[in-house]
Each structure stands twice: as C-alpha cells, then as structure tokens.
Computed example of a mutant assay.
Amino acid sequence: MSTKTRDSNLLSIMCAVFAVLWAGGFAFQPARMPSDHVTKALTDLERQVGQTIVIGFNGQSVHDASVRTISDQLHNGTIGGVILLGRNIQSPAQVHQLVGDLTNHVDPTPFISVDQEGGAVQRLQPRKGFPRWPSAAEFAENTGGCAGSNAQEQYATLARGLRALGINLNFGPVVDLNINLDNPIIGHLGRSYSDKSETVSRCGGMFISAHHAVNILTSLKHFPGHGSSKQDSHTVLPDITDVWQPEELVPFQQLAQTRHADMIMMAHLVHPDFSDAPGTPASMSRKATRQARAIAGQTTILITDDLEMDAISSRMTVEQAAIAAIAAGNDMIIASSYGRNDPNLGRRINQAIVRAVMSGRIPKDQIHRSYERIRAAKARLTNGSTPSSVTPSEPNA
C-alpha cells in the first residue's frame, strides 16, 4: 500500500470519527472546579488588558495545579485565551474535556487556540489519535493549487474536527510566499503553499472559509512575510532587508479585501520599511502595525508571534516584550511559556501592561479600542455571524 493511500485511508477513518463528534458531541460534561478555584475581582483596566493576552501552560486536566491557575485567570479576566501545545494534548477525548473545563461559564468566551497548519506544524498529531493533515506545500500539490471542491472539503473536515474539540482559533493559514526554498522555518518545512501570490491567496482563502463556516477564527501569518528569510525567528532575529520582496504583502492584501483577515500575526523580522529602528522587529514597531492596519482595516486583530521565541527572549523579558508590542499598536500578544512551567506568567504580563498604561507609555484609549476589537471577534464565535463590519471608534495611532 502506498504512503498516499495509507494516509488517505487514515484520513477517511478519522473524518468519520470527527463527523460523529461533530453531529453528536462528546458525552462529557465540564468537571467541577476544585475547591481552590478562586475568583479575584479585577479593575476594568485589568479586565480589558486581560483580553489582549494569550498564554501557554503546562498540564492536561483541571487536576493539574497549573491548569487550575490558568482556569482561574480565564474566569476572572486576567487573560483572554490560551494556546494549546503538544504538552497539553494526549487524545481527542482528553482535549475535549480540557477545553470544556477551561471555557465553562467564562464570559467573554476565551480564545482556545492551536497551531494546526498541517505537515510539520500540527499540534493534534496522528500518534495521539488525530488525523494527519498535509503540509501547505503538499496540500497545494495534491489539489492542483487548491483548485476544485476536494480542497475545500478537506479543510472543512479539519475545521469541523477542531470545532468538535471546542477549539475556536486556529493560527493559520501561513500566507508567506515560498521565495527561499532553503528557508529553515518556512520553505524547508513545506509551510508555504507556493511562491505565487495568487495560489497562496486561493489556498489561504479556502482554509479560512472552512473555519468560518463552523465559527472558528484564523490568523494570517507572518506579516510582513517570512518566506524570503534566511534564518528562523525561533532562534535568532532575522534581518530580511536584502531578501524581502513587496509581493510578499499581496496575500495579506487580497485576503483582507475578501474579509478573510480575522487576525494578522506580526512577525519577529527586521526590515527598514517595517522597523521603527535598526534591530527592532516588525512585531514591536508601529511602522509595521500601521501598515498592517492600513491593509486589513479597523476590525482585524493584530497579534504578535510568540514573545518567548529566542528572537525576542534573548533580548528582553517577556513582560518588557509585551509592553513594547502593545505600545507599538498590537491588539494581542502570545506568550507560550514554552519549555517551563510558569502558570503566573499571564498575571505578571497583565500587571506589567497595566503599569505601562498608568505611566502613560500605552494610551488607555488604545487598550479600549483593542478590547472592542477582541470582544467583537469573540461575539462572532457565539452568534455565528460573518466577520464584523463594526469599526472601533478610532484606529490605533
């Protein structure tokens, strides 16, 4: 049996499993929170700041102390969402239970996010009972550049499976152009659909439409384009000055024009057109967020890539990075707490941003505008509406 046939059979089996889950749901109920679950009243500012924070954590159930701490922070508004990594995932049933426990009676609905691109980047892995999803490059090749209904159907299956688990935010699609085939983090891993912007936009649009159909938000990444870089921002801060091409913006522009830009993920990349100063990444530069905002409009959420990647963490603390990112005009930040157990990270980031607001480094009205964007996006998760056309009172300057 060929690898392709074997993968197809596995996918068919898992699709059937997910179809059952989608139709009837898991027969689980959220667990009762342990007695040490405490709710602390926050100020309005702390709650608004909390919505800007997505945190990674250790643990797989509410019986883990770190999960109880994260649950408390979601309930009282210290943080607005979590990102699931491999350390949180054991099986479909376990993930569904974990998500149910984390989201039970939380208002507004927290973001339960994951990186489920396919290929090298899929947190829900076959060895843990989930379907295998092809990489972007493989997907585009197998579907003739995402032509025809087969491509849409495959992404619909992916999205329904995520929704059955309770996941409501998938950090994809990658809309980087495959300019540098030796790029260690994009091209080398098959994470780009193509070197042609029209193919990337078409495939990315299918990915997003399938997720929208089941009320899952997505994020275009990585602005302003990681496909030409020679280095991996997980390990160093890449300077793309001599390799970046203007065409790398085209997928962001085209998908934003067709209302496919729920979020844009700002990359840790240096380029004079997107960096406020030499050595300052786009993720922390107002020059970059203004351009992303001009492309995407006022309802799109700008979110950083993980602030604990070495491109950033080797230069500053995560609290300093969060302040710099929000001050630069991002609406949200991600801090994965990768490689360590730090359940109080979200609380520290919240307080650091609050102090920056109180000192005047971050305008309070900017936090409120970001809060409005996030609340509007979360409302779409529960009412099933298409991307909102409501515009916050003023743009982030």
Rank of each mutant, 00 (worst) to 15 (best):
G205A: 12
N183M: 07
I167L: 10
G204C: 12
V174F: 00
T199F: 05
N215C: 09
F171R: 08
R202N: 11
F171H: 12
Q154R: 15
D195L: 12
V200L: 05
G166M: 08
L158T: 00
G204W: 04
C203W: 09
C203L: 11
I186S: 05
I185R: 01
F207K: 00
P184L: 03
D195R: 14
Q154F: 13
D182Y: 07
L165R: 03
I216W: 06
G166V: 04
R163E: 02
G172W: 06
E198M: 10
H212A: 03
A159R: 01
I185L: 09
Y193F: 15
N168Y: 04
S201I: 02
R202F: 09
V200Q: 01
I208S: 01
K196Y: 03
P184M: 06
N178A: 13
H212Y: 09
I185K: 04
V200Y: 02
V174D: 10
G205E: 12
A213G: 10
L165N: 03
L165W: 04
G204L: 08
I167D: 04
F207Q: 00
R160K: 15
G187V: 01
G161E: 01
F171E: 06
R160D: 00
I167N: 05
M206F: 04
I208R: 02
L189V: 13
Y155A: 02
S209C: 06
N183H: 08
T157M: 12
Y155P: 00
A213N: 15
N178R: 09
V175Y: 11
I216L: 09
I179Q: 01
N215K: 13
L165E: 03
I216C: 10
I185A: 15
L189C: 02
E153R: 15
S201P: 09
L217P: 01
S201W: 02
Q154C: 04
R202E: 09
I167M: 06
L189W: 12
I186G: 05
N180D: 14
L169H: 13
L162N: 10
S201T: 13
G204E: 03
F171P: 04
H211A: 09
A156M: 07
D182P: 05
M206D: 12
I208T: 08
R202C: 11
N180K: 08
N215L: 04
I216G: 05
R160T: 01
S201E: 02
G204I: 10
S209W: 01
K196F: 11
A156N: 11
A210D: 05
T199D: 11
N168S: 02
Q154T: 11
L217Q: 15
L162Y: 12
T199Y: 03
L162I: 06
L217D: 12
H211W: 13
I179P: 00
G161T: 00
S209M: 08
A213F: 09
V175L: 12
N215P: 01
P173H: 13
A213L: 11
E198C: 08
D182G: 07
D176C: 13
V174E: 03
I185H: 06
G161N: 00
I216F: 10
L169R: 12
C203Y: 10
D195V: 14
T157P: 00
